[in-house]
Amino acid sequence: APATAEKWDMPMAYSASNFHSATGAEFAKCVTTGTGGEIEIVTHPSGSLFPGAQIKRAIQTGQVPIGERLLSGHQNENALFGFDSVPFLATSFDDSAKLWEAAKEPMTELLASQNLTLLYSVPWPPQGLYFKNEVTSVADMEGIKFRSYNNATSRLAELTGMLPVTIEAAEISQAFATGVADAMVSSGSTGYDRKVWESLNYFYEVDAWLPRNYVMVNSQTWEGVSEANQNVIRGCAELAEYAGNWRSKEYTSFTLQGLRDGGMTVGPASEQMVNELKEIGVTMTDEWLESAGEQGAAIVEAFKAMQ
């Protein structure tokens, strides 16, 4: 065994079978092999070490050396964390990649100021709209009970005339089964995982946004890693990002087929609805820019320049 063997426990919030967890597990294996066992990464999926909400703090304060977190969950702390979750700003894998390119530098800086070193980031499948009944325009959404889980999704409900209902992730299935909510915005994979076809009937591929998971290391831990090993880890991270992107795309079509097999009507939204939603997207982008300041504006500008 190597003299300086180090074990890195890596908390991850999603189930072991989720593609993010699979990507993380391969990244861990790559690092362990690549460093000749000098750094052994052990992943802990399903929030079994720390639940999602605690992971960023745990890495920041050195409770764990490394971990994965959906950073848009931390928008309250800094609006910049929500750049990947502005509705209808980047609405495809290609756009998401461009937006990420535009945001990489400011995000890396922001994370560095929080004692975090960014390794890689993988997008979730695009967010679509789930409804119990058919909807062809924003006017049809009036008064529908819409599951919201943060300020942006509440605002989305408000702008579309729906009633935001706060429902925790653990209660999603029960809430739909009992009619506490009749609609939500989420990726095809969430609906597939939760088998929402038991209660919901329509999935509209509006590709509202592609939120991202980020794998980060505690900066002090990172500084303590030899340059050779840093290079190995960087290399593995690049591979993981590539593989994760690919998996995300594969998984998107897999889950949408799963929703169809479950009996849901899956397809694009009507042209009218798409246009109306785009308008709402402009409003929400403006609102986000107000809170995200100059850096936010720079990201959006750089992104638009790439179009």
Binding site: R57, Q60, N76, N151, T166
Partner: peptide
């Protein structure tokens, strides 16, 4: 003290 130092804000709608 950590919470104050790293400005830990609730991730929910309560902020």
């Amino acid at each position: 003290n950590f919470s104050i130092m790293i400005n830990d804000i609730s991730q929910g709608q309560d902020r």
